[in-house]
Amino acid sequence: MKNFNYIQPKSLKEASDILKKKPHEAMLYAGGTDALGLMKQDIIKPEEVVNLKSVPGLNYISYTNGKGLRIGALTELAEIAENPVISEKYPILRHAALAVASPQLRNLGTIAGNLCQRPRCWYYREEFNCLRKGGDMCYAFDGQNKYHCVIGGGPCFIVHPSDLAVVLLALDAKLTVFGDRKTRTVQLKDFFVSPGDDYQHENNLKAGEIITEIQIPELPQDAKSAFVKFRERGVWDFAVVSVGAVIRKEGSKVISGKLAFGGVAPIPWMDESLNAKLPGVALSEEPVAQLVSEILKKAEPLSKNAYKVPLVRNLTKRLLLEL
């Protein structure tokens, strides 16, 4: 790890100004569970480490009846998993938070940090000068790509590692972003960036911008939600694939809903045309089997990850039938 200056800003403005002044040298540090690993492996070598935790007022969970949930950027995943309001109103969020990493990591990792974590691609993490690190090729494309994307890839073939992003996408969440002395609001679905547009960044935060809050709209009374994360190891493992579903139904029929997927694409994946087919689907074996066969229809698996397509379809089918 390279030596660095450790900066403890007292305000968002102060933090943002440093980040803006030194867009390449300064790094924002929240829980540090990912940042520290990146620094130790010399994947990033910041000169200034800006500790966001010295800025007060970014750790909260606030629910307003009829309006929804607001979560401060620095709220730890363990707090989300333990919060009684979240457990009652947004159980899917609790479920996703609990599925992350290990208890120790959940005690440190924050919700905004989880959305902003860097890819787990082993070519990115090891000593390969890959596209995302400024090199000129994606080693995964013709290489060991069992864990890589089956859709939306090229020229880089990562998957986005966040579990929370999948359920927040299905929950139609928004982010509040501070930067340039003002705030902006961005829909989560517009936050992530495909490698086709920019293969060195996973989101559209500009230099000096900081996520301050995650907003989740009120769910209708009749909404049902569920999340499933498939991982190879029972704990401390990233998703091979994951599925989040938020569905309104009447009787056994879907009125409306959203499905979101992790582990399949370089961004948390939502297919609007698929979701458009949800209304009217009866939640029974045949129609659900028909629906899930539409999932990842345009997938282009790499040499070692074709299994992800049936895996996602099987998991989604089970999830919908058990809603």
Binding site: E126, F128, Y139
Partner: peptide, 15 residues
């Protein structure tokens, strides 16, 4: 796991 194109190991940590 080894990347056969470069001859380098991809699994050098216990994650």
């Amino acid at each position: 796991v080894v990347d056969t194109y470069t001859g380098k190991v991809l699994t050098t940590n216990i994650h």
